[in-house]
Write a protein that binds this DNA or RNA. Structure first.
Lengths: 192, 192
DNA sequence: GTCTATATGCAGATAGAC
DNA sequence: GTCTATCTGCATATAGAC
């Protein structure tokens, strides 16, 4: 029944990740999703902004799950986060450096122009940050330091994605992975 | 003589920093710069892409100078970089979290669609990274580690800017400043 | 050098038939 | 639910007068 709706959501998510908000047109979404032309405003009466908001919310959940699963697979927080970053580097490489940072461009483009989308992006970053912070707290990290480190990890990831796109290489994510590992090891040492 | 040209370049730089590439229209540039309407294509026959390329190149130089000046004012690399990050935080705050990361949005938006602009952004990031790396090498950091740390610093800055815009607060840059300082101190200790 | 007027195209969005 | 046709507006870009 809602198969067309689902196809639209998935295609929009992919296009927003690789092209950003303003470069992604509704015509392109309909064309690439294979959904009937008439169904876009039927399923998304709020138009582009409403569709994008729902997509951001779904990406929020999808990535939260991915982070959660990955961090749960390894007991030690430092090793778990390092492993997550290496997996991200492989994903970036597999997508020819067009993927990764699924909401980075939308966040930058809409922060000052759409309160709805800004709030949706803020919520996503907040969730992801809290997952990293919780994992760090489960180790020897104090709540305050865990929170600050989590912000730093998210920032380093998003910035590294910009560099990867710009230079067409996954190396920046890998270098960030190494340095974040060393930062966490040092922090662990001081907390102990 | 080229006063209109200069006004166009400056206005474009400001709009690209705060709005990104696709959200910035030529009409808006002409209107806000106060330049004569007929002079845009006279001074920039290549249109939006050519104008943007020149703006990115100028931003590259401007920020390079700013980084260079700031790092030269303090002998110790760690203290110098920490001080630069705090200055950036003040700038972000003074601009109501709309400024900072002058090419971040353009880099993300055009990396896969415009080779010219992608190359211009790559060159800028390369220059800035080398300035940080050189400062680190002047201290006790090995060339290889200095390069990796410089990438990490640039990435953390650009990502922190995304978070600042999204949550309307300069706090992420300040938290990144603290963690980068600790990372550098730890690295210095190991190199010595 | 700068202007006005306009060409051309696509954006998001809507109306109404089926 | 889905379609086609269309509205409105703005985008980049150009032509030609002054």
């Amino acid at each position: 029944m809602a198969q067309a709706r689902e196809a639209i959501l998935e295609t929009t998510a992919r296009l927003l990740e690789t092209q950003g908000y303003h470069a992604t047109g509704l015509n392109q979404i309909v064309a690439e999703s294979g959904a009937p032309k008439g169904s876009l405003y039927y399923y998304f009466p709020d138009g582009k902004e409403g569709l994008t908001e729902e997509v951001i919310t779904r990406i929020n959940q999808t990535i939260s799950q991915r982070i959660s699963d990955h961090l749960a697979a390894e007991g030690d927080p430092v090793a778990a986060i390092y492993s997550f970053l290496l997996a991200l580097a492989r994903y970036v490489e597999a997508s020819s450096c067009r993927g990764g940072g699924p909401i980075a461009s939308v966040a930058l483009e809409t922060a000052t122009s759409s309160p709805r989308l800004r709030a949706a992006c803020e919520s996503a970053y907040q969730n992801w940050q809290e997952l990293f912070a919780a994992k760090l707290r489960s180790g020897a990290f104090s709540p305050a330091r865990a929170q600050r480190l989590a912000v730093c990890i998210i920032a380093a990831i998003e910035g590294a994605i910009i560099l990867c796109r710009t230079q067409g290489s996954a190396t920046p994510v890998r270098e960030v992975a190494e340095e974040m590992r060393l930062l966490l090891l040092g922090a662990q040492h001081h907390e102990a």
